[in-house]
Design a protein around this nucleic acid. Structure first.
Lengths: 232, 232
DNA sequence: TTGCCCTGTTAATGAAAAGTTAAACAGCTT
DNA sequence: AAGCTGTTTAACTTTTCATTAACAGGGCAA
């Protein structure tokens, strides 16, 4: 069945506001992951997955909109709520409203806040409850369970390492499209240099070996750019 | 509901002004690519594509107007805003002639600047939001995906190399018009000498081979000038 | 028509990227 | 500190791709 309460990613650099928001949500039974900057937020989302993301617009390094764009690359339907300062111009709010499921202007009351959160969840999961995050993927004849780090074909199950699972998941999210080397290195390794690149190659080799039992699934190289998982 | 905000190309050689402008735009949620000279700006535009370009008039090597003209060759509808140090009537006239959508004289307040930017975007994308950059082209019976570097006809898909994709895209942008050899060499290779010219010929040969399955698509030579992709 | 430059085409070359395997290493646990 | 596990580094091989070369036509001006 489904989970009882949604899990929420909160990206907020302000200590005080972050603490309060997390607390309010947790008291309502939500599972909350609080990250202080966009990069960590994206990493966490990739690894854990959430039912809803709440992003402050003003963030160090990577602002909320950029974060939102990158989150949507990982999951195009993920509900997103923005937190914005009151000083923001009206037309601007209109501008990004299209990409957001809701926006809340600071300061806000906890009641209003919770109402908005629940409204978005209700709208996105029509029974009011999240369907539960999907971290089991069907890759051709394979069944890949990301959280349990297992890869199964017919009766053969293999346990993957964290890195293997990360690379496989990212490839699958971008299946039939080129996954730029740089993107993968940035997201999974956090750095993009010669050696991490070579390291990735080693993982690709290993994953190909794991996936060789279904010829419909291949990992193709696009020279100088990255890799493309092709699922026919 | 995929894109949140417009992506902007900023071409500005001055460190301080460039930094400030980028920052101001980023804080407003725009995705900003800051290039320090015209050549790099054009290259970046060709490879990534943007919703709006902001060009300083005074630039090393290639001035803003020249850059604008070349940008318009790549995308005749791209919105362009000029920045200039002083009120130079001559420049203004020349600027509008090249097709500026707005013209901002330095120094300017961030408020004024942002208003102008938003106004131009609003004017150009009537719903206030950019349409999103298109990098999938229909070339006769072919479907060419620039970012994924694929060229497809019916069920046959072939992956292109970076250079092949670059040349093909440039030819297509100038379809039914002559693409000067020099233009292509400058933009894609960055230099225009005998050997790069010969190299280009090799790519033309290869692209012709790839495109031979649709007789309605040809790459014709214009002796001494360049090539013309003809799509009937 | 002749000669010269420009283009078409194919093959050879060399450099860089990727494939592969094994050893080294780091972080745990026992 | 020995063993175990997972990741990175290293060393070597193979592949890929842009460039260069080599040769064959073509177009155009004189």
């Amino acid at each position: 069945m489904s989970k009882t309460k949604a899990s929420i990613l909160l990206v907020e650099d302000d200590q005080n506001l972050g603490f309060v928001v997390r607390d309010v949500l947790q008291l309502k039974g939500y599972e909350v992951d609080w990250q202080k900057d966009g990069t960590m937020g994206i990493k966490s989302f990739f690894e854990k997955g959430f039912d809803l993301c709440i992003l402050d617009v003003m963030l160090p390094n990577k602002d909320g909109f950029t974060v939102a764009t990158e989150l949507r690359e990982l999951d195009k339907d993920i509900p997103i709520i923005f937190l914005t300062a009151k000083t923001m111009q009206d037309d601007r709010i209109k501008g990004y409203k299209a990409g957001a499921d809701d926006y809340i202007t600071k300061p806000f009351s906890t009641e209003e806040f919770l109402l908005r959160v629940e409204a978005v969840l209700k709208r996105c999961f029509d029974n009011g409850l999240p369907t539960g995050r999907k971290d089991v993927f069907n890759i051709g004849k394979y069944v890949f369970d990301y959280t349990n780090q297992t890869l199964k074909i017919e009766k053969n199950e293999r346990t993957l390492t964290k890195r293997e699972a990360d690379v496989l998941k990212l490839l699958f999210i971008n299946r039939n499209e080129v996954l730029a080397r740089e993107t993968a290195l940035r997201l999974i390794w956090g750095s993009d240099d010669y050696f991490t690149g070579r390291s990735m190659d080693v993982f690709i080799t290993r994953l190909r070996k794991y996936l060789k039992d279904d010829p419909e699934v291949t990992i193709d190289n696009v020279h100088g750019v990255g890799f493309k998982m092709v699922v026919r």
